[in-house]
Amino acid sequence: MCLGIPVKIMKISDSLAVVEIGGVKRQASLALVEDVRVGDYVILHAGFAIQKVDEDDARESLRLLEEIGICDI
């Protein structure tokens, strides 16, 4: 129901940020998130950052995925 894509924060001024994906930049509102910094990834939906993407959790997910394959085979 809801497209959301991970984009990188390039610049922040007040509650607006410039975000980037694949070299494409767009303005995004940060009104719905707290504690985000330049360099962070956020999920972008309809022009708003709706959540910070957690890098540690992402790495952990990938590690678990690697394991699923190996343990089950």
Binding site: L3, I5, V7, E20, I21, G22, G23, V24, R26, L44
Partner: peptide, 12 residues
Amino acid sequence: QDNIRGACELLG
């Protein structure tokens, strides 16, 4: 190209 892919992701 990366930027075309990026634009497509943004716009769906």
